[in-house]
Simulated scan of single mutants.
Amino acid sequence: MNTPLLKVENLTKHFRLGTDFLKKAVPIVRAVEDVSFSVEPGETLCIVGESGCGKSTIARLLMRIVEPTCGRVMIDGTDIAGLKKQPLREWRRRMQMVFQDPYSSLNPRLTAGQIITEPVDNFERLNRQDREALAADLLRKVGMSPEMMHRLPSELSGGQRQRLGIARALALKPSLIVADEAVSALDVSVQAQILNLLVDLQQQMGIAYVFISHDLSVVQHIAHRVAVMYLGRIVELAPCEVLFARPTHPYTEALIAAAPVPDPARVRLEVPIEGEVPSPINPPRGCAFHPRCPLAVERCRTVVPPLVPMADGRVVACHVRAPSMDVPADPIAAAAAPFTHISQP
């Protein structure tokens, strides 16, 4: 069995609210709790969920922008969560990030060409001719004219800025790109262009994506597999077509049912979900979704459901829909189910 490009095991992040200077109990935000998944070369794994469920925190943990409380983040079998300074610096070439806001993620004082080549300058020295050739080539790859390398970000539209952010991410020839809500700040027509660009680049260069989004229509267009998060935990992970055709976890059902349908003749399934998302400072015992779940039983209130593999290739954390009597010895392996390419919808 081939080693996955990215393998995440039991990733956890707790944020302490203040210090214990007065020897008092300090509240802890449990942003990410025991998350495991894998990503194969050339695969797109989308992470979805409500605001505050921990999606963006996972992106920052993968990039080591914030340090994990515990758990492992392995690239080609090497745990980068434990690397320091120079070893980590070398591994950063393998992973790049595209940020949500194309307006604030670019240095306004640098030209487009300087923005693209700045990451390369951190690792190797290029002369002016090579630097301009690299910038021109990457601008062409993302659908922009090479003449734009002399423009400042303020002279570009939102879509052009996000294309520039993608070109910057490609400069170091990464194996993995983490895209955190990369199209949410763009117009719908520009969103489609950027998504198609990402798909084309993946087919040409074999790049893997961890794509974070709250927009299910975007996810359905680009994803190979989808991980659904609720209050810091993955509750369902499945191939994209399987998940949207037959959601299993009650929260996944509610999430898909809440998405707007552009066809007025189509009747949308209504899934009753009551109450508010619990606080990550004081999450419920057992299944975090049980206070809002119409299917909750007594066991849901006391026991955290493990991710259980189903016959159709998905894994689900639900005592009712996926009873955990046949839990595998390695639950991490269940969340890292084999990936096979599917055609994009």
Rank of each mutant, 00 (worst) to 15 (best):
residue 342 I to C: 12
residue 37 F to C: 08
residue 294 P to Q: 05
residue 172 L to I: 14
residue 79 D to V: 06
residue 26 V to S: 07
residue 106 L to Q: 01
residue 126 L to C: 08
residue 284 P to T: 07
residue 229 M to H: 00
residue 188 V to R: 08
residue 1 M to K: 14
residue 86 Q to S: 15
residue 338 P to N: 07
residue 280 P to R: 01
residue 6 L to P: 01
residue 282 N to G: 12
residue 184 S to T: 04
residue 323 P to K: 04
residue 85 K to F: 12
residue 142 V to G: 02
residue 336 A to W: 05
residue 303 V to H: 14
residue 19 T to F: 12
residue 252 T to L: 06
residue 89 R to W: 14
residue 244 F to W: 08
residue 299 R to Y: 04
residue 5 L to G: 00
residue 16 R to Q: 12
residue 150 H to I: 12
residue 173 K to M: 10
residue 206 G to N: 07
residue 175 S to E: 15
residue 12 T to Q: 00
residue 31 A to N: 08
residue 41 P to H: 05
residue 248 T to N: 10
residue 211 F to E: 04
residue 238 A to G: 04
residue 145 S to D: 15
residue 121 D to K: 13
residue 123 F to I: 13
residue 200 D to A: 14
residue 207 I to T: 02
residue 143 G to M: 08
residue 154 S to R: 14
residue 116 I to T: 10
residue 336 A to M: 07
residue 266 R to D: 09
residue 111 T to M: 09
residue 227 A to V: 02
residue 175 S to D: 15
residue 144 M to Y: 00
residue 201 L to G: 03
residue 176 L to S: 02
residue 137 D to A: 15
residue 325 M to H: 15
residue 31 A to P: 04
residue 63 M to L: 15
residue 82 G to P: 09
residue 212 I to S: 03
residue 151 R to P: 01
residue 343 S to T: 14
residue 190 V to D: 02
residue 265 A to F: 13
residue 40 E to N: 11
residue 149 M to Y: 04
residue 197 L to T: 04
residue 190 V to N: 01
residue 170 L to P: 00
residue 156 L to A: 06
residue 20 D to W: 10
residue 302 T to I: 14
residue 290 H to K: 09
residue 113 G to S: 07
residue 189 S to V: 07
residue 180 D to Y: 01
residue 251 Y to D: 06
residue 117 T to L: 08
residue 198 L to G: 02
